[in-house]
Amino acid sequence: MMRLARSILILAAGGAVLAPLCALGHGAEFLSAKLTLLPDAEVLLEVTADYGSNPLIMDEAAALDALADPVRLREHDNLVPLSALSPAKTSQHQNWADYAPAAYLPSSTEGEAHALMTSAWRWHSTEPEIVFEMPKGKLHDVLLWTHDATHPEAPPKWMLLLAGDRSRPIPIQQTPWWRSWMAAAGAGGLILLSAYFVSRNFTLRQRTL
């Protein structure tokens, strides 16, 4: 009953303005999933695991495991692994600043070591909205937060997904209708301009001859 209520609340909340977060003292126990919505329906999901001082992710191998299938994309009745959308690009670093909300950065009250591993997936969405879901039985909670590249000043929104949770539908950045018209008009203009210069050049050459 409580789970159902929580799921409803997650969906109803639609993500909250980011409260200060700082999962320290024992590493970030959940994965930080930074969702960047790019123009032209492009989606970038960067999932970061902290394997420094983390009782749930003890070492590099465990971090790789955690990032292998951290969350899935719901497409109708199917849960699609991220690996089916694009190959992952994985890197190791110690740069929380680019992969977690500002308020999630290490606190001065903690002296714990952090070691980060990020896997990134990039794909074009065929759907106007995307929904992420955590299959039941997943060990690692996922802090899903959105970074809108077209509105970088907007405060990030976040939700903590536990196993079995589903995110709200997240609208992606579709190409605006006028952009394709503008592109066609621009291309047409270029062709006309090229034709003009070619013909002018041809005329000048004839005159010279």
């Binding site: 409580m2 997650i10 909340a13 200060p20 977060l21 700082c22 999962a23 606190s107 939700m159 903590l160």
Partner: peptide
Amino acid sequence: KRVADLGTSPQPTNTPGIA
């Protein structure tokens, strides 16, 4: 058997940073 829930946060949390 769960017989009561108290103070339930509307959204799951897990952070020491709420001021």
